[in-house]
Simulated scan of single mutants.
Amino acid sequence: MKKPLSISELKTLFHAGKFNDAYVDTLRKDSRKGVQQLIKAFERQKAEWMKLEKRFIEMTCYEQKAKEAGKKYIAGVDEAGRGPLAGPVVAAAVILPLNFKLLGLNDSKKLTRSERKQYFEIIKEKAISYEVSVITNNEIDHINILEATKKAMRLAITSLHIRPEHVLIDAVELSLKDITTESIIKGDQKSISIAAASILAKETRDVLMEELHEQYPEYGFIQHMGYGTKAHLENLAKYGASPVHRKSFAPVKKSMG
């Protein structure tokens, strides 16, 4: 009779993703506590996986609807950085392939930085086309944040090397020549294309803010990415506005007297 694997060996197989339903069924008669714990861990993992599968399918509904209407290339668009007191606003547009699958894809703000970085690379690798655009704080002051956001979005869309036939946009109304558009409130939680764009925009902006932190460390951009936290407002009052602050935003105006 073949000697059963040790708990340590079974743990190695489990963490390597080698467990499946059939194999777990063969372990159920093994009364060892460690084996039963691994079976429970597998079942929890499977339940979570099924939950992510269901969530991902739900987030393809807007894309599926557009495809059923005859649209082949569907872009998702989102921005990062409308609210901060400093730095640029960044928009991203992305066209995902029909077979794209990335479980756990969600609003970038709900992911850890590590997850976002990982997804950022996967999306760039798998996308049919993607583009990121940046509008500086000076232009934001010149045309206002809403118009700057729309400009960034339009630039990202028109810079795609494949022209989209339909565009899903997170919460912003845009009119585009010969392209149908759909504005979706909380779209980064409802559409995989918008969620993917959210990750590209957010990660790009965070990297830019980290670079600005190197230039202006006294403001602590690396901690708050330019948002109006208590620490940021205190540093703004202490040091005044930097060249990358948005002078048209009330707290920055206040710091300038």
Rank of each mutant, 00 (worst) to 15 (best):
L102F: 03
L103H: 12
G104T: 04
G104L: 09
G104D: 07
G104W: 04
N106P: 03
S108C: 12
S108E: 08
S108P: 07
S108Y: 08
K109I: 07
K110C: 02
T112M: 09
T112Q: 11
R113H: 09
E115H: 00
E115P: 00
R116Y: 01
K117E: 13
Q118G: 02
Q118N: 14
Q118P: 00
E121S: 12
I122M: 05
I123F: 06
K124N: 08
K126T: 09
K126M: 12
A127Y: 09
I128H: 11
I128K: 11
S129N: 13
Y130D: 02
V132Y: 02
S133F: 05
V134H: 02
I135Q: 01
T136L: 09
N137P: 14
E139I: 13
I140G: 03
I140Q: 08
H142I: 01
I145M: 11
E147T: 02
A148K: 10
T149Y: 05
K151N: 03
M153V: 06
I157K: 01
T158A: 09
S159T: 14
S159P: 03
L160E: 06
L160K: 07
H161K: 15
I162M: 14
R163I: 14
R163V: 13
P164I: 11
P164D: 14
L168G: 05
I169N: 03
D170N: 13
A171T: 04
V172A: 06
V172C: 05
V172K: 10
E173M: 02
L174W: 06
S175D: 12
K177M: 07
I179Y: 09
E182C: 10
S183R: 04
I184W: 07
G187C: 12
D188V: 10
S191V: 03
I192C: 06
I192Q: 04
I194Y: 08
A197V: 05
S198D: 02
I199R: 02
K202F: 10
E203P: 00
